[in-house]
């Protein structure tokens, strides 16, 4: 039986939502789902090499950011890049950066992004993936 497929449109560049995405990807990996991730606009900022480990912006409950980040440490929560890496090691997962999003953040080459990224793509690739998926998420 073919693996189920998850397509994730990842718009966010904030560590709270990226951490949530990492949790979902962990579950998908445990279930051997095929995963396609499309890195859109603000997420492209977070995926740039110079930002991935230093960006600590949060999107929600921003007045509790310090408490939130301290809790992630207390709970030994892997950084979102490590969560994505683990998921990628355990299942068939591909990460595409939207070409437009990359340009917005001055990233036009694959080498501008962290090593987890597989290619730079256009929107039709995302729509085709979404059409053929069992689960579609936008974060």
């Amino acid at each position: 039986m073919a693996n189920k497929k998850l397509t994730l449109a990842l718009y966010t560049g904030s560590v709270d939502k990226l951490t949530a995405a990492g949790v979902i990807l962990g579950g998908a990996a445990a279930e051997d789902m095929d995963v396609e991730i499309y890195v859109l606009l603000q997420a492209a900022f977070a995926f740039k090499k110079e930002n991935a480990l230093t960006n600590d912006r949060v999107a929600e409950i921003t007045d509790k950011k310090d408490e939130f980040l301290a809790s992630l440490d207390r709970l030994n929560t892997p950084h979102w890049t490590d969560a994505f890496k683990t998921a990628k090691e355990l299942t068939n997962m591909t990460i595409h950066v939207c070409g437009f999003a990359g340009k917005v953040w001055h990233g036009e080459k694959l080498d501008d992004f962290i090593d987890l990224v597989d290619d730079i793509c256009g929107i039709s690739q995302y729509l085709t993936s979404a059409e053929n998926s069992d689960i579609n998420l936008f974060i």
Binding site: G26, G27, A29, A30, N76, T77, T86
Partner: peptide, 14 residues
């Protein structure tokens, strides 16, 4: 025991 969800699930998967 040192990990939160999905850590135990991933440990089981591995």
């Amino acid at each position: 025991r040192g990990t939160s969800c999905p850590g135990p699930l991933l440990a089981a998967k591995k």
